[in-house]
């Protein structure tokens, strides 16, 4: 998550960044083989466990095995439509196999599959102001066209519907939620962008180390144009919605927000962080020694401010 976004959450824009609730729906579909079945269920269980331990106010629903039918999924989606409000966040995570016939993407679940068109129907009726949809199945790129929407963060494990091999993206997405190294800005929160970067890079590293041709190329889409971005193509300034979408929190970073005595220090902290951001932005126009000097001074003061906050 970008620090500037996080700070504004801390101080001012509670309505935007601290939603009343986050609705999580995680579904692991049909494995087809015992090995896949076990893997999908275990990844979903990991996600469920991590989310329930998160410091966010969350409503967590996880469907696995025989429970993950179309009727059940329809029900929980409809519930979310009914329950969510404009200040809420909504996260849908689908794990398993998918298919794409050139028209419809289908998520493979026990009984009749559910199509992207039907999923879009529910998602488009959601009132949740912020939505994250993560489809981690084979052929999930096929769902990009129907599920894209401006303001919705959409992650798919494959670049198109024609990447049909079983994916490993879900394994690393689940891992991202519990590996502290996924929290690259160390703000004790994992954003959708951090999780995407982690899972996409780890997936690529998996194929590289196995000397296998990568059969999945995860994409991130949030503009509604349908032009998904690969992790390697993400440039500064791209993925802003995903960067501002806090998937889970851990640690005690937000505790300070509640202490009125520390508001002044928090304000100073935000100010320093903004100055650091600005300095980094100006780096190219400065000499290296001058940049280092100013950065060191700001970082030192920030560290002292944090030390005072932690007392």
């Amino acid at each position: 998550m970008s620090r500037a976004g996080f700070l504004s959450c801390l101080l001012a824009a509670a309505a935007l960044c601290a939603p009343a609730a986050t609705h999580y729906i995680t579904v692991s579909g049909l494995g087809g083989e015992a090995d896949y079945e076990q893997r999908f269920t275990s990844w979903a269980a990991t996600i469920d466990q991590v989310l329930r331990g998160s410091r966010l106010d969350a409503k967590t629903i996880t469907l696995t095995g025989a429970e993950a039918t179309r009727e059940r999924l329809r029900k929980v989606l409809e519930d979310a439509v009914q329950d969510s409000g404009p200040n809420d966040a909504f996260v849908l995570m689908l794990i398993g196999h998918g298919t794409y016939d050139g028209v419809d993407y289908k998520f493979n679940i026990p009984g009749p599959d559910i199509t992207d068109a039907e999923l879009a129907g529910y998602l488009n009726r959601l009132r949740a102001g912020r939505q994250l949809v993560v489809i981690m199945t084979s052929s999930s790129g096929g769902a990009l066209e129907r599920l894209r929407k401006e303001g919705r963060v959409l992650v798919v494990a494959t670049k198109s519907g024609t990447e049909k091999n079983a994916t490993v993206f879900a394994r690393y997405w689940a891992e991202a939620l519990r590996d502290p190294s996924a929290d690259t800005d160390k703000n004790e929160a994992i954003t959708a962008l951090e999780a995407f970067r982690y899972a996409a890079l780890k997936s690529a590293a998996f194929y590289d180390s196995q000397k296998r041709l990568a059969t999945e190329h995860p994409l991130l889409e949030e503009t509604g144009t349908g032009e998904g971005l690969r992790v390697t193509a993400l440039e500064e300034g791209q993925g802003r919605l995903a960067a501002a979408f806090t998937l889970l929190r851990f640690g005690s970073a937000q505790e300070a927000v509640k202490d009125p005595a520390k508001q002044k220090l928090l304000a100073r902290k935000e100010e320093l962080e903004s100055q650091i951001d600005l300095l980094k932005y100006q780096k190219a126009a400065m000499t290296e020694p001058e940049y280092r000097k100013q950065l060191t001074a700001l970082l030192l003061e920030l560290a002292r401010t944090q030390e005072a906050l932690d007392k």
Partner: peptide, 22 residues
């Protein structure tokens, strides 16, 4: 440690080390 904090200015263990080193 400065490089660490440049990447994540709010990284507390690095902040502590910076203070110690300074």
């Amino acid at each position: 440690v400065l490089l660490s904090l440049e990447a994540a200015p709010g990284y507390r263990p690095a902040q502590k080390l910076l203070l110690e080193l300074s």
